[in-house]
Design a protein around this nucleic acid. Structure first.
Lengths: 113, 113
DNA sequence: CCCATTCATCGACGGTCATCGATGCTTCTG
DNA sequence: CAGAAGCATCGATGACCGTCGATGAATGGG
């Protein structure tokens, strides 16, 4: 099934790495958290106040705080307190693991083995 | 891979699209299903028999069948029956939605586009 | 024609999650 | 110092998920 050349992008995913990636994916497998990440992506590295998410998502303050905590524990976002407010931003490169695993399969260039 | 002008990420993610993507992400937010997708990625488009997954994942046949059903309902894999066996393969382009949403942020108005 | 093989489905069980109101903590303001 | 504002945490609740054994359905072989 798997040939001589180890496919580059479909790199082997052992049980350990699968469990690790599962944590990140579970953090992203929620519509509210997807919208949060999308907002932060569009913020282009800038921090966003918690009070910005609340009206945008239409959730209670407690729920928004919960979602941000989940994302933070997954290493996807970072918290920074200024005064009574909290600002969150994307962790640089945190989404690379997701991008890498779903990269297209090997180039299928048959020859060079 | 991604052209400079394709604003995949940074693209607004409204509530509808977020819910849609949530379905795909939930299907992928499981270590067993991640390993299944990884196996199929490495199979480079070829179909893989159910009986191949079972020993690889170390799960009961019922559980493997369940995971494959979840992936199929999310539109990520496709089933093809041959005799008493079932073969599964990745749906072409099904992972593009995932790749797109997490693409790097827009170049912040970097000139030429 | 009968049996073995392969897979999908069902029912059940234990665990986890999303959401909310209430509460406590920290910081700013008057 | 007292009050208000912003946020995190707690406890509860209802829903969903992963796993398995058992059962059913379809197919191929002797």
């Amino acid at each position: 099934m798997i040939n001589c050349c180890t496919p580059l992008a479909g790199s082997s995913l052992d049980a350990g790495r699968a469990a690790e990636l599962e944590g990140v994916m579970k953090a992203l497998a929620d519509r509210q958290r997807l919208r949060i990440v999308n907002m932060l992506l569009r913020a282009a590295g800038e921090s966003v106040c918690v009070c910005e998410f609340e009206p945008f998502l239409g959730l209670s303050q407690a729920t928004v705080s919960h979602h941000l905590k989940v994302l933070a524990e997954a290493g996807l976002v970072e918290r920074e307190g200024r005064g009574t407010r909290s600002y969150y931003s994307l962790v640089d490169g945190a989404l690379d693991a997701v991008r890498g695993v779903f990269a297209p399969a090997a180039p299928a260039g048959a020859g060079s083995c």
